[in-house]
Design a protein around this nucleic acid. Structure first.
Lengths: 151, 151
DNA sequence: GCAGTTGTTTTGAATGATTCAAAACAACCA
DNA sequence: TGGTTGTTTTGAATCATTCAAAACAACTGC
């Protein structure tokens, strides 16, 4: 589903600081969710729940939803919602990057801005529409699924 | 919600032909859905249902869902799913155009390709991802909602 | 260090969009 | 015009997500 990154996992203090800096109370479910997303970016609520449960049994799914909502609201995580799929979350925020969704395995990968810097897109004729953000989703097959399809 | 276009409404025969050409049986719910979408593009299932009911009472919501699914499958309509909203449908298919969603009134407007012709977007680094399509959603305020906000 | 306040999590239930399944029905072909 | 096949109706289920009240825990100030 979602590829495991080899990125360094953040320290406890680092996560605490980020959460506190966002004006939120530091709680174990929040830290656990942040850690889970650092480990497995583009996870859905259900996957985050599974990961959180692993080192914090007794955590409820609703708590995970609540935490994800709070973190998203605070700008600590970003929510993406590919058409036809439950929402996914990631900690990479603030840069205007985009996503590629594999139609085969439903994995999501980050894609840097297609053209130049953020905001990298502007409509050719906006008819007076004031653009605040642009969201790009690429659909196709990831390298692994192409290989499998070739076999 | 969704702006009323002034576009010419298609003739019965035109709709029948399109549906038949797609390999589907021509039924009144299908014609009614096509007509509703010609009248009000970017409508959701619920709005289409309301419009269809108007001249075809007795039509069920499930039938509308079924018709929309069949027409989408056949390539006669396109389904768009802005994050956080129920799916919307439109008859403009085959060109790779995009959408602007107003955060104020939730209306959707078509936006022509941002840069050049379709496919107008390619990732800068695709890591072997084979892109089949690119979907762009602009978020912001439509002209009307800007005017209202200014007052 | 400890109590109060405020915000968070738990528990349990509800919601909304969408889909499934079986039976009644209608379009199209011969 | 009848048969076949695909479509719609009817009724119910599903999934992701949200709501609400009560139990609880983090932070503030003492």
């Amino acid at each position: 589903m979602t590829g495991h990154t080899l990125a360094r996992l953040p320290e406890q203090a680092e996560l605490d600081g980020a959460i506190r800096a966002a004006g939120l109370k530091v709680t174990s479910p929040r830290v656990a969710v942040m850690r889970a997303l650092a480990d497995l970016p583009h996870s859905g609520a259900e996957s985050v729940f599974a990961a959180v449960r692993h080192d914090l049994p007794g955590t409820s799914l609703q708590a995970v939803y609540g935490v994800l909502a709070a973190l998203t609201e605070a700008g600590l995580v970003r929510r993406i919602e590919p058409a036809g799929f439950p929402a996914r979350f990631e900690r990479r925020v603030g840069d205007n990057h985009h996503h590629a969704v594999c139609s085969g395995c439903h994995s999501v990968q980050d894609i840097d801005c297609a053209i130049g810097e953020a905001p990298c897109l502007l409509p050719s004729d906006d008819s007076g529409f004031a653009v605040h953000s642009a969201e790009v989703t690429f659909w196709g097959l990831c390298a692994a699924c192409q290989a499998e399809a070739a076999a």
